[in-house]
Design a binder for these strands. Structure first.
Lengths: 262, 262
DNA sequence: TAGTGGTCTAGACCACTGG
DNA sequence: CAGTGGTCTAGACCACTAA
């Protein structure tokens, strides 16, 4: 069970707090194989006795390792070893959905057509809900109609069709209209980016040369309960749009966390 | 200073732990304006006395609010109010750089040309370091040479030119070769995605029809000290490649955190 | 130096899980 | 039911910051 060690030692030097020393020792023991991944760590009370520290100190150590993703706690069960190495991963932070779009704010939608579609396109694998989805086609522009950003086709979940008549009038993005009116919150956005050739019709709408390239984005806006609220397909002339992103290395716990408060 | 409230009340019902009730109360007071953003909260001992709970409970409450990004603690100073609302933001998690690429693993690079470039392309805004960057052109394939994924051009920071001769032999991605050999760690990757037309030469290399569309990715691999280790430009025939991503809403603290351990 | 948050103890009871 | 982690108390001393 790995070598004992009395944390009471080293009364001077070693300014490191005991819970960190203990955390290190636990990591050492996990890596030595004493507690393989998936196994349960000894109970807090046992660790407390074994290392001669209070349960508080043990819990602080375990808390740190839990934050690092090495352990997980389960009331009534125990503390499970989740990993031997604290995992690094890359993360992209996006402040808001507008940042995800990468448009400067203040764009508006000019509606060309309002129709209904049985199911939002073949390549969008949504369940056929048996209802037609309100569908809007148009182009997005900034400030004046001359400043065209992209052609777009929007599919609205019929459950939210109340907002459809208002689309194109205000400046709120559609997902914001849904969030406001129905108190729904977008919890996830899926995006697919691909390259396409501008068809003559689309080229005309965005005032670009037909036959040149465009960047197509297909986005699914998903609310709670995994309900798809809205699907959009946009095509940007490639000389006007480039998709930029930045990911950073981070040593991190699971996506869990969250907090109290509202 | 907002209404008092005795947390000792409600001995039954209200199974919520006291530290969460206290956290909520503190949030209420912050939002009421009692403690504006930037101000210091009363000391832990004072809160402990005021609410009739132990300092431990106060600290747990503050810990939660700190995790939520509403407060920050500063030893010797106090607890500062950082925000009145816990901020939501969207996050994309990427397990590894390979996930960022979205290639199935096990791809290899076939080298066509080895040259040197004064500065990695005009559209790559790097400082001209006064040295030529080793440059490699080729295509990436999976398993057999018939399975071509993309054409690619790679610029290596001359500081790492030792690895250049080995490129194309192993299966390690170049950034892994750098990480291993120089103990450098990629801490950030920047990516720009745009749409292009396949030139006849590139089309030939990836076995696609010239004149069709391709998705171009420009990536900068950045290590510690913000040093650019490597720049790559890849062009994927668009019928073979689509860039998919998913962002999730998260209520979150700053990118800080990290933990002890190694 | 006075006051803050950081660490730590030795207790206690509760909520939850599994057999 | 026994055993786990979750919450909580009433103390204590230390490290740090600012005046």
């Amino acid at each position: 069970m790995a070598s004992e060690l009395d944390l009471e030692e080293l009364p001077f030097e070693a300014k490191e707090p005991r819970y960190l020393m203990l955390a290190r020792e636990i990591v050492r023991e996990i890596r030595s194989g004493a507690y393989p991944v998936g196994a349960l760590l000894p109970a807090e009370s046992e660790l407390s006795a074994r290392f001669g520290v209070s349960r508080f100190t043990v819990r602080e150590a375990i808390r740190k390792l839990t934050e690092a993703g090495l352990l997980s706690r389960h009331q009534g069960v125990g503390t499970r070893v989740e990993a031997a190495e604290s995992q690094a991963r890359y993360v992209q932070y996006i402040g808001s959905i507008e940042d995800f779009w990468q448009y400067v704010a203040d764009t508006r939608l000019h509606v060309l057509k309002r129709t209904k579609t049985r199911t939002p396109l073949a390549n969008v694998d949504l369940p056929d809900l048996g209802e037609d989805w309100p569908t809007i086609e148009g182009y997005r522009y900034r400030k004046t109609l001359a400043n065209r950003i992209c052609w777009t086709r929007i599919f609205i979940n019929p459950f939210y069709s109340d907002i459809v008549p208002e689309i194109g009038s205000g400046t709120d993005p559609i997902y914001v209209m849904i969030e406001k009116r129905y108190k729904e919150k977008i919890t996830e956005v899926q995006q697919q980016i691909s390259a396409v050739i501008l068809s003559p019709e689309i080229a005309k709408h965005v005032k670009a040369k037909p036959g040149t390239t465009g960047l197509q984005t297909l986005r699914r806006y998903i609310g709670s309960n995994n309900r798809v609220l809205e699907v959009t397909i946009s095509i940007h002339p490639s000389d006007r749009f480039r998709y930029d992103q930045k990911i950073r290395l981070e040593y991190v716990r699971g996506p869990a966390a969250a907090g109290a408060t509202g």
